[in-house]
Computed example of a mutant assay.
Amino acid sequence: MASLPFVRVALLVSFSVLLTVLLGFGLPALLNAVAKCCGFPETSVTECIVGVYFIFVLYVATPRIPRGSIEVKGKSVFITGCDSGFGHATAKHLHKLGFTVFAGCLFKDKGERGSKELEEMQSDRMKVVQLDVCSEEQVNRAVESVGRGEQRRCVYVWRGGVYDHGDVPPGVRGRVVNLASMYGRMGNALRSPYCVSKYGVEAFSDCLRYEMKAWGVKVSVIEPGNFIVATGILTRDIVATTADKLWREAPPGVQEDYGHAHFDRHMAMMRSYCSSGQKDVQPVLDDITDAITSHRPFTRYNPMEPHWWIRMQVMTHLPAVIADRLYF
């Protein structure tokens, strides 16, 4: 089976060719008319189209260019949400690379499996701390536990939560890596609460990048695609429990307006998502690592399957009327 990078390149190049062919029939005529009105030679329009297309294909097909790496020894990372999912996997991955990891866990004080597994590593470089990102007191206590010296060269990987730039200690010369989602760039049916939270992470990360530039802090956003199977974030039991609660607590008028058949149809759709997506979180870990260790990290990373990447480009760059017709 072809590797994912090869499949991605093949699909994206095919997409670019298809898009060029579709636009090629009408766009040149339109641009030629505009160029003629402006007094420019008509041939220059065709040359420009070919040039833009060549640059696009080159951008899609070119592998990530190495941009130098920082020295890992003596560096620390502070990670939230390490009980499970991306946070847990990131903590173990970065520890393996040689970082000192401060792993924030919501359920450390309850001895849940995720935090317990990290503590059982019994490593001086794996420090598990109690952290509810919605509690200002716990956030302040966790940051203080890192130590003032460590804070100034620490990388902060925030998997969730809302915070302000005061949570990043002044004088820091490190990085902030926020985990968002492809749904921070585009909406989808039945995803409104999730999309709202991820759009917020995207907007906040942009603001934080501008605000912290004066201190040399670089801010990156990771936008994973569908990793439901890999992270176990959504299961059939969760869908069933949530669906039962939603329907039971809905006012009679709402139940009558929507109808049980409509509700059941959408819940069946949610159950179908439980077995979808990539099974390995390694693409996300690789991008987080690049954001942390590269001398010139990207602003945004898109670890996702090719068809999701194409959909995100269509929904964020083409008119909404086209995207809506294609996907909804």
Results as ranks from 00 to 15, higher is better:
residue 171 G to K: 13
residue 175 R to Q: 14
residue 177 V to H: 03
residue 179 L to K: 06
residue 180 A to R: 04
residue 181 S to M: 10
residue 182 M to A: 02
residue 184 G to Q: 01
residue 185 R to C: 05
residue 187 G to A: 13
residue 188 N to A: 15
residue 189 A to M: 05
residue 190 L to W: 15
residue 192 S to C: 06
residue 193 P to I: 00
residue 197 S to E: 07
residue 197 S to V: 06
residue 199 Y to D: 00
residue 200 G to K: 09
residue 202 E to S: 03
residue 203 A to H: 12
residue 203 A to L: 07
residue 204 F to Y: 08
residue 204 F to R: 01
residue 208 L to Q: 03
residue 208 L to C: 04
residue 208 L to P: 05
residue 209 R to P: 05
residue 211 E to A: 09
residue 212 M to F: 14
residue 213 K to V: 15
residue 215 W to E: 00
residue 215 W to A: 07
residue 217 V to T: 13
residue 219 V to L: 08
residue 220 S to N: 11
residue 221 V to F: 05
residue 221 V to K: 08
residue 224 P to A: 04
residue 227 F to D: 00
residue 229 V to Q: 10
residue 229 V to D: 00
residue 230 A to Y: 07
residue 230 A to S: 06
residue 231 T to N: 12
residue 232 G to N: 05
residue 233 I to V: 07
residue 235 T to E: 03
residue 237 D to H: 11
residue 238 I to N: 14
residue 243 A to T: 08
residue 245 K to I: 12
residue 245 K to T: 05
residue 248 R to Y: 09
residue 249 E to Q: 11
residue 250 A to H: 03
residue 252 P to E: 12
residue 253 G to M: 04
residue 254 V to S: 05
residue 254 V to H: 04
residue 254 V to C: 04
residue 254 V to L: 12
residue 255 Q to A: 01
residue 256 E to S: 11
residue 256 E to F: 14
residue 256 E to D: 12
residue 259 G to C: 10
residue 259 G to W: 09
residue 263 F to G: 10
residue 265 R to M: 14
residue 266 H to F: 11
residue 271 R to T: 06
residue 274 C to N: 05
residue 275 S to Q: 14
residue 277 G to R: 11
residue 278 Q to C: 11
residue 280 D to C: 10
residue 281 V to T: 13
residue 283 P to F: 03
residue 283 P to L: 02
residue 285 L to G: 05
residue 286 D to Y: 07
residue 287 D to M: 14
residue 288 I to R: 06
residue 290 D to V: 07
residue 290 D to C: 12
residue 292 I to Y: 10
residue 295 H to Q: 14
residue 298 F to N: 00
residue 298 F to Q: 00
residue 300 R to G: 03
residue 301 Y to I: 01
residue 302 N to D: 02
residue 305 E to W: 15
residue 306 P to C: 03
residue 310 I to V: 13
residue 313 Q to V: 12
